[in-house]
Design a binder for these strands. Structure first.
Length: 295
DNA sequence: CTTTTCTCCTGTATGC
DNA sequence: TGCATACAGGAGAAAA
């Protein structure tokens, strides 16, 4: 699943393959891919044509291209299975292809592919970046990103403030890690890994943890995402931007996520899987004891 | 305001 | 073999 490291790998690929190019054609193949664009897919496509992709930026799992001359943003969210692929101009439509941009230079097309269709595109205004005001972005951020918190890799990420906000919460610490308005970029995989590294069960209440412990969990979240990014970067193929290529290699380094029944790398106890928030949580029964009152 | 639950989607794996 | 069911889960709307 694309979380922060995978999205960053895609951002770097776009920087290399599409930034500074001008859109000459845009096709949206399904209404659903533009469902977050209120004016609809035709409007989105029309407004892209003739624009230059001036810059690519990211916050958490959101990705966007700054358009010139309109100074709007093409916002991309990959959802669970979205991919941006750079393919030779004019190649046949791909399986699960939902959108395609073609360029004035007759170079490769940019294709949005998404099997489970939780991802999508939108064209929105750029607004001043309030959340990241400590390290402002020259173009600002797209409207749908304005309510998203900074991610742990941003210069403007204020960890003491995030720790304080978490500590005030009456909710499970894993729920807080997944709340993109508190800290962005963390999904189910890296939440489980960060909690395993910290030796904390995800159903512990934030308010019952110490602030140093919460801070340590965020440190681990950052560390594990940087480690994944380092490996994703090495698996990047020069000819296309591939989300699966980014996460595939790091799979071998996961200690908890998806490791049900395998020995905990720290103590050897089999990793358990539990249902939480309508998804799966993976943890070590010995290193991450459950809080009281949780069966 | 804060916190939780529900819904969207389809390919793959598993069970009877 | 065939059909039904569970599962993967990000994010926003709706509900509590």
């Amino acid at each position: 699943m694309p979380e922060l490291p995978e999205v960053e790998v895609v951002r770097r690929g776009l920087e290399r393959h599409v930034v500074a190019r001008s859109v000459v054609g845009a096709a949206l193949h399904s209404a659903r891919v533009a469902r977050r664009h209120p004016a609809g897919g035709l409007d989105l496509a029309d407004r892209l044509i003739g624009q230059r992709l001036a810059e690519v930026d990211r916050r958490g799992k959101y990705l966007w291209l700054v358009l010139e001359p309109s100074l709007e943003a093409l916002v991309v969210h990959l959802g669970m299975s979205g991919q941006l692929l750079v393919v030779a101009a004019g190649t046949d439509r791909l399986r699960h292809e939902h959108a395609r941009l073609t360029f004035a230079d007759d170079g490769p097309d940019l294709v949005f592919v998404d099997q489970r269709t939780f991802g999508g595109l939108a064209l929105t205004d750029l607004v001043p970046d309030v959340r990241g005001a400590a390290a402002p972005r020259p173009y600002g951020v797209p409207t749908p990103v304005a309510h998203i918190a900074c991610d742990p890799l941003e210069a403007a990420f204020d960890q003491p403030a995030v720790v304080a906000a978490m500590w005030r919460r009456q909710s499970a610490v894993k729920r807080a890690l997944l709340d993109q308005s508190l800290v962005s970029g963390i999904g189910n995989i890296y939440a489980d890994e960060a909690l395993w590294r910290a030796g904390v069960h995800g159903q512990r209440l934030c308010a019952n943890l110490t602030r140093p412990t919460l801070s340590r969990i965020l440190d681990h979240a950052r560390d594990v995402m940087v480690a994944a990014l380092d490996q994703g970067g090495t698996s990047f193929d020069a000819t296309y931007v591939n989300v699966n290529g980014a996460s595939g290699y790091f799979d071998r380094s996961l200690a908890a996520y998806g490791q049900t029944g395998r020995p905990c790398p720290r103590c050897g106890t089999p990793i358990r899987r539990e249902a939480f928030m309508n998804r799966s949580s993976h943890s070590c029964p010995r290193c991450q004891p459950k809080p009281r009152g949780i069966p």
